[in-house]
Design a binder for these strands. Structure first.
Length: 123
RNA sequence: CAAGCAAGUCGUUCUAUCGCUUCCCUUUGUGGAAGAGGAAAGUCCGGGCAACAUAGAGUAUCCUGCUUCCUAACGGGAAGGACUCACUUCGGUGAGGCCGGAAAGUGCAACAGAAAAUAACUACCCCUUCGGGGGAAAAGGUGAAAACGUGAGGUAAGAGCUCACGACAAUGCAUGGUGACAUGUAUUGUGGAAAACCCCAGGAGUUGAAAGACCAAAUAGGUUCUGAACGUGAAGUGGCUCGCUUCCUUGUACCGUACAACCGGUGCUUUCAGAAUGGGUAGGUCGUUUGAUCGUGCUAGUGAUAACACGACUAGAUAAAUGAUAGAAGUUUCUUCAUUAGAAGAAAUACAGAACCCGGCUUAUAGGCUUGCUUUUUUC
RNA sequence: GGCCUCGUAGUUCAAUGGAUAGAAUAGAAGUUUCCUAAACUUUUGAUAUGGGUUCGAUUCCCGUCGAGGCUA
């Protein structure tokens, strides 16, 4: 249930290009969420990206990526899968903040972002 | 004892819950094992490995530059030599740097100064027709630097012009050293700068794992084969499956057959259907972690390092794993209480994340430990 | 992963190895005006950083830091 295996990560170059060319995105600071409807074998594939421009050191980028991934892993079932309705989706999370935030702050913001995603998805 | 600086070295631990990557196992699941560094960083050097290229001790370009050694190699390291600076008990000690050549050639040196390398302003000496001509380079002043320094002889005045002592450089010889070089001696000479151009010696083929090798879906197209269909430009004319003429978008050939026709065969153009096949995209596998490997011991060597013996297997991801949360402990600092031990609270716990692999260099680093130096205080 | 270029006043740019690093604009003060603007006068302010070569370094050499670009 609380898994995050290889099938749930977005690895295909083609799908990535498709995702970033789509216009269906919104901003909820410090995240920018991109999503796209796609036929897959798993409910959702996720990609997390932290810009090198804002975080020079690899250690900082790794830390943020691990925190975001952990929050997604623990909350994906009730927050994302619940409204998908047997369909599948591509998800991109861009971190656009300028400093390293704490786990609790990131958790609050990301859950809010998932609520917003549900609204825009149902439209 | 404390503080500071420099160098070296180590560089947190445990528990619970939920996970990630690789490997193993007929208990295939509530399974087991392993899982970042001293710099993984910067990409500043050197190699391995791979593909391509290759007449050359050529030319151009770039790099390196005291000696000997180590090494796979190096711009790295070890030991030493000379130089500069600091200290000195004058015996040395410590630190530093791209440390070949200025006596091959070209160019450069602002301002000041007569003059910045073919010296001559004032002053000096000789001659004079008093306009000047000649000699000489000690003294003055300028400058970062002024024609080797001091003393004596010498001279019209002077000058390494000569002599003594001394400084430095080049060359020859002798001695010591593997050598750089040192010491002595003879001869010749005396400005700086090559991190200006340049000369000399040595070295460098180019591109980098996104190299390269292999497997290869779907779709489109290429090639080949099989089958089917279609096509010998149009118009006019004659002796009409043929020849001739005209026009256009310039258009079917060969063989069986002496000529023409027919017939047959081979081939060509276009379309359709089926089959095979090569290249190759998405994607995947290898390259890829057993290696100039690590640990211990012993031997050789001043040392870097090397030889030998025994033992060990120690990350392998690919939009990229090695984590998140909670709690406890350890260490350090501060405050309060205690003033022997200690107790409570607060804060901090670094720099930083493998990406083909090694050897160096450089830079970052909380805190602990070791060594050296400096300073202050106390005691003797 | 590999390679290249650049760093000068707050900003945009200059400067053969040579005196106190220059210009425009911005800032400050003053003149002018009833006040503001414009104009005029004066003035402040910089070689990314640490070493080295040189009599002397923005310039030459080496290390570090930062910024930008090329390559697929």
């Amino acid at each position: 249930m609380y898994t995050f295996k290889k099938e749930e990560r977005l690895c295909s170059k083609k799908l990535l290009d498709k995702l970033f060319q789509s216009r269906s995105s919104f901003v909820l600071y410090p995240f920018r969420i991109i999503w796209l409807h796609e036929e897959l074998t798993v409910p959702a594939q996720l990609v997390i990206s932290i810009p090198k421009r804002n975080f020079k050191k690899a250690v900082d980028r790794n830390l943020l990526k691990r925190r975001i991934r952990e929050i997604y892993r623990l909350h994906k079932t009730e927050s994302v899968y619940s409204f998908l309705d047997q369909k599948s989706i591509l998800l991109g999370i861009n971190y656009i903040g300028k400093e390293i935030s704490e786990y609790t702050y990131l958790k609050k913001k990301l859950l809010a972002a998932f609520e917003k995603l549900q609204k825009s998805y149902s439209k």
